[in-house]
């Protein structure tokens, strides 16, 4: 049985029209997804609606948006989990990114930071059976939901942010040939691990069960340890200072 759900969709066109919400009534089954609903609005009600999507199975990260105020990957967010028959869904773009139009944000600031950290996309897989040289993609899908949920990102656009810091922790923990000295410097900064207020919102919304806040805490512990070591002229921070 299809439900009737009202989608209230954030609309904004570059510059001209002030931002507003458009209501769309959608016939949708409870086990369909929010993205199914949005695609249907585009296909049958309003061809001007713009939104990001690609893989539809929680691997590319592009369909991230806010659903009733919470960051969701719309392709794996089932209608029955976020509303009821006759209910309303407020759909907005991610926060803390420049809005391009409607639900489309410009994710390039996050990719600049990810690029700075330089985490490879590929890691060695944990083999299910006999160890072999399998590899697989990193769990982080760079969807930007942690960046959107982070209250500190709202206060400072200089903050490196949870996604890039979690990547820094991954790279330092498992360098795979990457020179990590610059990553230490990037992490040990007032706009980096020390800016986090431990709200833990990032981990709450992560669709890959990542734990960016935990990664930031782990980086802090490593940095404190390195600082103590450097008092005795040892460790990576001391070597950096020495040239």
């Amino acid at each position: 049985m299809a439900w009737q759900v009202q989608f209230r969709v954030f609309r904004s066109s570059r510059g001209e029209v002030p931002a507003h919400f458009d209501p769309f009534t959608v016939e949708i089954k409870p086990d369909e997804t929010v993205l199914d609903g949005i695609e249907r609005i585009w296909a049958f009600q309003d061809r001007t609606l713009t939104f990001r999507h690609a893989c539809h199975h929680a691997s590319c990260g592009s369909c991230a948006m806010r659903v009733n105020g919470v960051e969701k990957l719309s392709c794996v967010t089932y209608i029955q989990d976020v509303t009821s028959d006759g209910g309303t869904l407020v759909v907005e773009p991610l926060r803390n990114f420049p809005i391009v139009s409607d639900l489309v944000v410009d994710v390039s600031p996050m990719f600049h930071r990810m690029h700075e950290v330089g985490m490879p996309i590929i890691r060695s897989a944990e083999p299910l059976g006999k160890p072999e040289n399998f590899n697989c993609f990193e769990n982080c899908i760079e969807c930007g939901m942690c960046v959107s949920a982070c209250p500190v990102m709202l206060t400072s656009n200089q903050y490196l942010g949870p996604a890039a810091l979690a990547a820094a922790q991954r790279t330092i923990a498992e360098p795979r040939g990457v020179d990590v000295r610059s990553i230490w410097q990037l992490a040990d900064d007032e706009n980096s691990v020390w800016r986090c207020h431990t709200a833990f919102e990032c981990g709450e919304v992560c669709p890959s069960n990542g734990d960016p806040a935990g990664a930031i805490m782990a980086l802090r512990r490593r940095l404190i340890l390195e600082r103590i070591k450097s008092l005795f002229g040892r460790g990576i921070l001391a070597r950096q200072r020495g040239g």
């Binding site: 939104f51 999507h53 690609a54 893989c55 539809h56 590319c60 592009s62 489309v104």
Partner: peptide, 9 residues
């Protein structure tokens, strides 16, 4: 979006 058609899915 890039890859929002056949390739993406």
């Amino acid at each position: 979006e890039i890859a929002s058609g056949t390739t993406g899915r």
